[in-house]
């Protein structure tokens, strides 16, 4: 399998404040993130809210300008593309958004929403009914407005819009997070079917470890903007104490299997003011003095982890 997407040292620094009497504060939303995504693969990105996973999704699609790093899509350097070339390239990469309520223009009919990708690329839109049917909606809905649809139906429209131009890469930014559990399963099933039918490659952003385990081939675990572990298989045992804590906090549907939740103690450090050592050291049961003074780098190997005291496999 060839790499469809290759990301090296991707960094995003946000500046805020900076008025008359205030020095601007910088925050590293995404810090030196590197990964590759093979054609046809599903790569999960998990982490708590605020860990930079949504920013990463937008950086990959160049919806936000990176501060540093390299971004290659199918061999092309995305950061070197002219605005016109980037616009054309957008046919090959699409995004499904978290909130299906605000991701569709309330004034548009479904037919207009599905015609938009073609309109902005200067193409003639095909029959919207057929596009609705590929995501399991009746073709007769084409003249409806989004407010007449349920959340799950809207998300299906969002998926149909993302797939309209037959992209290679689809970035899924928590596509099920704002849906009911029963609807979540339907959407995941739809995404699985579409991937098989069309050979899609997914970058799947989520905070739901259970879903990621079911859906993804490999998983990046992010903490405060940096990748702390890359799980080579979605069900691989964690090596980083943070991943272990995340997995331990996941809700187990079977009551017999439930353990007492090992809640993480301590506060997440402010992203504006990161400690010098490992960002997780303050909450980590295995932290030593070394962790508090030096920042561990992601080691290279079959199961990379950024930790001085990883758990045994």
């Amino acid at each position: 399998m060839s790499d469809l997407l290759s990301v090296t040292g991707l960094t995003k620094r946000f500046q805020s404040g900076g008025g008359l009497f205030q020095r601007p504060r910088a925050m590293m939303a995404v810090r030196e993130v590197s990964f590759t995504l093979a054609r046809g693969e599903v790569l999960g990105v998990v982490g708590e809210s605020g860990c930079g996973k949504s920013t990463l999704a937008r950086l990959v699609l160049r919806l936000i300008e990176p501060t540093g790093g390299e971004l290659r899509f199918d061999g092309t350097d995305l950061r070197a593309l002219s605005p016109a070339a980037l616009r054309k390239m957008r046919q090959r990469m699409a995004m499904v958004f978290q909130d299906p309520y605000s991701s569709l223009d309330p004034r548009f009919t479904l037919a207009q929403i599905l015609a938009e990708p073609f309109a902005v690329q200067g193409q003639t839109p095909p029959d919207p009914g057929a596009m609705l049917e590929t995501v399991g909606l009746p073709a007769t809905m084409a003249q409806s407005h989004p407010h007449q649809l349920s959340g799950g139906q809207r998300q299906r429209v969002g998926i149909a819009r993302a797939l309209a131009l037959s992209p290679d890469l689809v970035v899924l930014d928590e596509p099920t997070a704002s849906l009911d559990v029963s609807i979540q399963a339907q959407i995941v099933a739809l995404l699985t079917r579409l991937r098989q039918d069309r050979g899609l490659t997914y970058l799947f952003i989520s905070h739901d470890l259970g879903l990621v385990r079911y859906f993804c081939d490999r998983v990046l675990v992010m903490y405060l903007g940096a990748v702390v572990e890359v799980l080579p298989r979605a069900d691989a045992p964690p090596r980083h104490p943070y991943t272990a804590a995340l997995q331990a906090s996941a809700f187990v549907p079977d009551p017999a299997q439930r353990r007492t939740l090992a809640a993480l103690t301590g506060e997440i450090p402010s992203p504006f003011d990161l400690p010098p050592g490992c960002a997780f050291a303050g909450r980590c049961p295995r932290a030593s003095d070394l962790c508090r003074t030096r920042r561990p780098a992601l080691d290279q190997g079959p199961h990379p982890v950024a930790c001085f005291h990883p758990l045994k496999d």
Binding site: L63, R87, S103, E116, A119, V120, R161
Partner: peptide, 20 residues
């Protein structure tokens, strides 16, 4: 609103986003 970002992710330019 996310639908503006969505339009941008499809390759929409400023004129399209403003007028449509």
């Amino acid at each position: 609103e996310t639908f503006i970002e969505a339009a941008r992710s499809l390759g929409a330019g400023n004129t399209h986003i403003l007028t449509r």
